[in-house]
Design a protein around this nucleic acid. Sequence first.
DNA 1: GGTCTAATAT
DNA 2: AATATTAGAC
Length: 622
Amino acid sequence: MAFAQSFYNQNSGLRISVMVVDDDPVFLQIMSRMLEKSKYRDPSIMEITVIAVKDSREALSTLQIQRNNIDLIVTDYYMPGMNGLQLKKEITREFGNLPVIVISSDSNKEQESLTCGAMCFIPKPIKATDLTKIYQLAITYKRNGKSILWTEHNHQDTDHVTIPQQIQLLPEQANVLKTKKKRKFSPRSVPRSLNSSNGSCVSTDGSRKNRKRSGDDVESLSKPAKKSKISWSDYLHDLFLQAIRHIGLDKAVPKKILEFMNVDYLTRENVASHLQKYRQFLRKVAERGVCCSSMLSGRGIDSIFAYAHITEPYYNNYTATTSWYDTSLNNRSFYSKPGHGFGQSRLLSNPREPIRSNQMPYNYMNRSSTYQPLRNGSSLTLPISGNLNFPTQPSENGGRRSFFESTGVANYTGQTSQVLGFGQHGPLAINDNNFENNTVSSCGSLTPNQPGRASHLLYGIELFLNNENTASMPQPHANATTEPNLGIPELENLSLYDDLGNINELPCDISNFQLDNNKPQEEAVSTTQFELPASFPTELNEIFSPGEEGDWTFVNINQGHSDGETSNIFAAPETNSPIININPNQIQERDDPDFIDWSLLDPQDLANEFDFMDSLFNNDMN
DNA sequence: GGTCTAATAT
DNA sequence: AATATTAGAC
């Protein structure tokens, strides 16, 4: 009703409705919230309504109900079923010329998007300035009158419509907006300097905020309310990071950062405090090297990762409860051990290298993980239902192979490690030199609420259930139909490729795993506990145990968001551990790389070579 | 007098 | 643990 009211309120100025379409629930939420919050940055906007939907189908059905109500559509490119551009076409066909913005982590899609009539293309990760773009487009569009007026009869609806964070946006701001708690003044302990042992004590007092107070201060009655703590929300921190990115780490000082951030309720002191903490973080990274891995969209891997968290002290060290994040990571991100990582990994920092401040992974501060660590390490709850299939493949290389075998090792910062994939195509992920015949093929996956469609084939290890409901069985991958080993899994013949391990290495016994196809994917959580086979913890422990030296940092970058893409979703650790790398055919990279003296390199070359971090924040503000 | 920042208080 | 405040230095 608050919702409806705001719609009726003609005095509230411009009302913008943006529909965001993204199959990644995390991104969807981030995006929605960012958009919601961004209204505070433009006083001309009184109301932004964000309608978040998870796929094209839902987008279309929402449009059918609220077509007149939506000023702009922001859609991800890669989505199961209909991709962003197909959606755009469909919208145009059904609803006419609504402005559509396409976003994607794949910048190659820009041209295509624009060609297909997208109003603009925005690369992921989304930045605050992109938001400005987005809603300014919406405003323009609306002001030009292309958006039909809202009419009463179509306002009931919203089965699918989410309006995230309608009310309590920016709680920190609300705080500042004069909640003005009359907090009782509590005397501070008398600073040393007041004891006049230090001549400079009385000093600079005119400033109210710096005034020292003592308990017997007479004016304690009319004490100004103690300043409320600002909370460094994800949004704020993101802004903060962008500021630093923009200004340059070395030149970023509170005042400049504040200026850039342009958040009216922040003070320089706030920023200074945050900066201090941030620098501490950087120092820690520099000293120890931090491992960071993420599965940007991988879902089926969760079980493994959940397990991974069990064994690692890193988890405790770095991802305990804080909520720093970078938009390029999501809640599937985690810090892995030095020298280890899943997926295609990128070495972010390496203490063996000289510290180059401008290459610090300062956008990878601690981040929370939604995984539930399994403390005893003996059982595992699979967070996502699905099926597991390891199609049989001919063995060409003898010897036992690990799930986690790597194909190469990143030796220096910025280098990508290619790894054995449990990607949607498995072998395709790493189809060069030695692996096409060794790699486990993909496990398909299915989205329970999308019967008949394996919507996210990049799910790595999932459990394929021998499910009676054939309607929900994964269908062959579009690109996999000609591949004998891909496609509909042989559910009754659950077996692992011998060279890759064996069934005992599965993280669990799937015999009593139940899949609830009626639940949406995010809720289709099994509570079934599974026993881990003895061999599995050993191997994982190996993988996740820290190296003796060379604390390296990796981040996983996920690939393969949709049909037709290759994915390196599941990957080997970056290690030359003899346990992991047994394949005699494998070309090993040097274990101990030549030391690279960065000072001898041309800065421009460096910039090119190590553009990974840059790419995360490029297209910075102008 | 403003700003930065390490140290310290809350 | 996170944030605010202080105080010395520039």
